[in-house]
Simulated scan of single mutants.
Amino acid sequence: MPRRHAPSPPRCPAWAGLTPQQILARYRPGHSDPLQVLEVLLTLFNSQHTAREKIVSHKTRYERASFLRRFFRDLKRKAGFATVPDPRGLRQKHLQAMITVWQQERLAPATVQTYLSFLRGLASWIGKHGLVRSPAAYGMEAPDYQRHENALRDHSWSAQGVGAQEVIEQIWAFDRYVGAALGLILAFGLRRKESVLCRPYAHVQDHGASGRCLRVTGKGGRVRWLPVDSPQRQAALDAARQVVDRTDAPLGDPAHDLRHNLRRFDYVLQRFGLTRAERGVTAHGLRHQVLIAHYEALSGEPAPVRGGDGKDSEARRAVAELAGHARPRASGAYLGGADAKRGETPSAPPRPLTSPRTP
């Protein structure tokens, strides 16, 4: 089935035939409610990706709109401005004031980066490209905004003493859809959403010299082919096939949409104590476990988060490919960092995406 984007929100009938510039010209700065202008901007542009010609997800639209509404209200409530400014009049003083607020509130680095990204999107909508500068330009120190790209500890279930297979069997008895999805994560290292969207019949196809593979579409629409080359992977697919009611059906409960199935997935894991607060693990930690095991099987050495030095650049590249990342260095988010002096070896051929050895 071809990939379909969510439709853009409908425009007001009075806007028919007008360009965005003509529509915005109807709302004169200083005479129109700034928050109303923001809603117009969101209606016109919020469905669009800020850097690519594509439609963004409902989740991104919701989070971006929620942040921007809160940002302009907080300029008055928290940053001390007498009035809420028109979004088209956004200036450096507004950005600096809110960044000072975020520093005082000690927001997480990832949150600061996300907020600045949302503001860059707004700046592009109003034709002020380059308005939002780097965090350092606003006096922020690196720890205030730099994400830790490399894992600092072992997030796997096994590291927390959680037996994956045993727990998955228990969950299967409670909810076979979630149990089957976890089985696919354990076998293939999928993301949560990838496992719920997996079509265990239709997505298994021949892929040239690799033979029978599971076709997985990940973030950014990137497709990867994971060979069905082990009894564990075949067993996970067989179990998932017991759950679906049609050969073209995805793994989630057919009575509900994707959003509901993802919420159900999270609820079931929480019910079984599979949270960071209760047992120190999450569904993503199971993916960490598979990717760490894959590195160790290829390199013959522990991953950095388990005391190794991470010097095998080919194994790190293979982990990134198995995970569905375009950049080899993304493997550090699961394995931990290697010595930067070693670097990557671009000319080295990638290793096949064979089955990981799961602890």
Rank of each mutant, 00 (worst) to 15 (best):
M1E: 08
M1H: 09
S8Q: 12
S8P: 02
P9T: 02
P13V: 13
G17M: 04
P34I: 05
N46R: 04
T50C: 07
T50Y: 08
A51E: 15
R52M: 00
R61Y: 09
E63Q: 12
A65T: 04
A65S: 15
F67H: 12
F72L: 00
L75F: 12
K76W: 04
A82L: 12
E105P: 09
F118I: 08
S124C: 00
I126S: 03
G130H: 08
M140A: 06
A151M: 05
D154P: 06
A159V: 03
A164S: 15
E166S: 08
I168A: 12
E169D: 14
I171M: 08
Y177P: 05
A180E: 05
R191T: 10
K193R: 14
V196P: 01
C198N: 10
D206R: 15
C213T: 09
L214A: 12
V216M: 07
V223W: 03
P227C: 11
S230Q: 10
S230D: 13
Q242S: 09
V243T: 02
D248C: 05
H256F: 15
R259V: 14
H260C: 03
R263M: 10
F265I: 10
L274N: 11
A277K: 09
H288G: 05
V290D: 02
H294F: 14
Y295A: 06
E296Y: 13
S299Q: 11
E314Q: 15
A318W: 09
V319H: 15
A330M: 13
L335S: 02
D339G: 11
D339F: 08
R342M: 13
T345H: 03
T345F: 11
T345M: 01
R357L: 14
